[in-house]
Design a protein around this nucleic acid. Structure first.
Lengths: 212, 212
DNA sequence: TAGATTGTTAATCGATTAACAATC
DNA sequence: TAGATTGTTAATCGATTAACAATC
């Protein structure tokens, strides 16, 4: 089947399916139905089926989808099979946490190095190097890096962003709670804790009000 | 004006407006128009105006909104003015980064303490205590905590979640990349790095394909 | 065959955008 | 008055859900 243009809403649900499928124990059935997946994740079964239709080569009526194939299909679709190299700017607490988080492998993300105004020599032991920010341009160009992760304080986020773009970076994962101005062909994905907190906070307010 | 029921989409955009308004320098005009806000954030002006109408007491034609009031209105709407206490479970790298992040104050979030199977005695200096997980129940009840933050490995996320709910927690901020099963009245907000990565990864794939 | 499931086509719903009237 | 802006009402768009036909 030829892949149709995929919507962002569908795209965002795929990792959830993938995580669940991969979490299933070895002994599970070889097949899984959209109905079963939907129930497990608390979603509508039609939605799950439609989403899977976007990436899968098809399931079998009465049986479902071959679990292994479905995992492969989603991973391939999301590009988890070929690794993306990234640089991280800002080696504060959060930056270092991300830098040394081993779980990104599973998503095809490989953070090559961090950059900061205060480099920590490679001897730091933790594995990935923290280099001086002035080495950013050279590093990105020799390694053909396409993704940048911003974990600097808000005040520096835009200038770091500009610098990354000058280095040829095409996608930016922004942890600074601020809007970044970028050219059209560059994608900024904001990891917006403030947004999440707004949703949580709103729920609690409603809960408290209900109680009264 | 009576607040109408707000949609999640609007809610998620409010923190962006707020951050921008607060970032404006002291010397700026007292007023700001929806048009100006929209341009600064790269959004449609009608959307901004409609969003602001949900929370604001109104702007003045030809002039715009009083900046200070707008900030107050959004903060009040989001409940940032009255603090929410939270506990954090899982004092790994990410957990500690969040625990000691000072920026949450601005969002009305106050993490009281972290819990882990390996407590670090209060002497750790960094400020917030890391207590043994067995003290969770007592702590939550005496402090009437309503929000829990989960930063444990995936395998333990569901059991930690269940335990939090038993403690009377109503809102959960989940950093574990897994679906959590909860009763209807509990809100789970997933801070889903995998989702963000999927969006970024997709964009890069498209970029690469275009180049060919 | 009967029934569970897939995949598709149509209907509904909600959110965004466009058009317009009101205001200072 | 003229023009920028607000706020509202209508139109469009996209995503979700429902209904149904196809399949094993």
């Amino acid at each position: 089947m030829e892949h149709k243009e995929i919507s962002k809403s569908v795209l965002k649900r795929l990792p959830g399916y993938l995580a669940y499928l991969k979490s299933m124990p070895e002994g599970s059935s070889l097949y899984i139905s959209a109905t079963a997946l939907a129930n497990a994740l608390g979603m509508g079964e039609v939605q799950v089926r439609k989403d899977l239709a976007m990436v899968s080569s098809g399931g079998r009526p009465k049986i479902g989808y071959l679990r292994e194939s479905l995992i492969d299909d989603i991973e391939q679709f999301l590009g988890y099979d070929n690794t993306t190299d990234a640089v991280l700017i800002g080696a504060g607490k959060l930056g270092q946490a991300l830098l040394n988080y081993s779980g990104f492998d599973a998503y095809g993300l490989n953070i090559l190095a961090a950059f900061d105004t205060q480099p920590a020599s490679g001897s730091a032991g933790e594995g990935k190097p923290i280099l001086h920010i002035d080495r950013l341009e050279g590093f990105c160009k020799t390694n053909k890096v396409l993704m940048g992760i911003i974990t600097v304080p808000t005040a520096f986020a835009q200038q770091v962003c500009d610098r990354l773009i000058a280095c040829g970076i095409k996608a930016i994962w922004n942890f600074a709670p601020t809007h970044l101005d970028v050219p059209q062909n560059i994608l900024v994905q904001n990891e917006n804790m403030a947004t999440s907190l707004a949703v949580l906070s709103m729920h609690l307010q409603a809960q408290i009000k209900d109680k009264k």
